[in-house]
Design a protein around this nucleic acid. Structure first.
Lengths: 102, 102
DNA sequence: ACGGTATTTCTAGAATTATCAAAATAATAA
DNA sequence: TTATTATTTTGATAATTCTAGAAATACCGT
């Protein structure tokens, strides 16, 4: 993963509202969650929610699939996994601590 | 870790310049790296570098220790580790993939 | 086609963030 | 103390981001 890509993803999920969305979707698993339900849970205007969803989509953190009249948001788990790998592959490489076995 | 804390850390390291600093310090390990050397590696003005270092310190991502005339920046590895844990404890919990054994 | 629900686009103001030159401070050596 | 190197503070400008109201679009049942 390129540094700019990682920085972009980190910046996107580094906003409290968007991190809340990410957490909801992570818990929702592969089923995802409709925009409307996210809006209810967060209690914010639709336009504001769309703004944040657009950010998350632009970094491929989430994707949307239409199911009937509702749009379902789903976590891109691979992207999140790659991001964590990017951080951990460098992280702690020089720090052979005892906690590794935990 | 509180959501706002995690979001703040993510936002801080979600900037290309600051992510570069983090990577340098992660590679530097517990020895750390002086501000001046970081500045040489990144090729940016000192005032700009200080601005970003201040951000990283405010989120406790790094700390500074004076050694003679130079200030040495060091990674707070525990904070980074906690952040990754925060993301991974929720992440992939519902996604039992085959790559887990890798 | 019409009405209702779901969601986005447009728009704009407020708030935050990034950048860097210039001046100031800190530590050390001569 | 003066000079020198190292780093920060100040201050100003430019750019980005957040927020949300109003209007527009998309889909579906009748």
């Amino acid at each position: 993963m390129k540094l700019d890509t990682a920085a972009n993803i980190l910046a996107k999920i580094g906003n409290p509202t968007r991190l809340k969305i990410v957490r909801l979707l992570v818990r929702a698993g592969d089923e995802g969650m409709p925009v409307g339900m996210i809006q209810k849970k967060l209690g914010i205007p639709g336009s504001t929610l769309t703004h944040h969803i657009t950010h998350l989509k632009s970094a491929a953190v989430i994707r949307q699939e239409r199911r009937q009249a509702t749009l379902v948001c789903k976590m891109e788990f691979d992207v999140l996994r790659n991001l964590v790998d990017y951080l951990t592959e460098e992280c702690c490489a020089d720090v052979a601590s005892a906690e590794d076995a935990a």
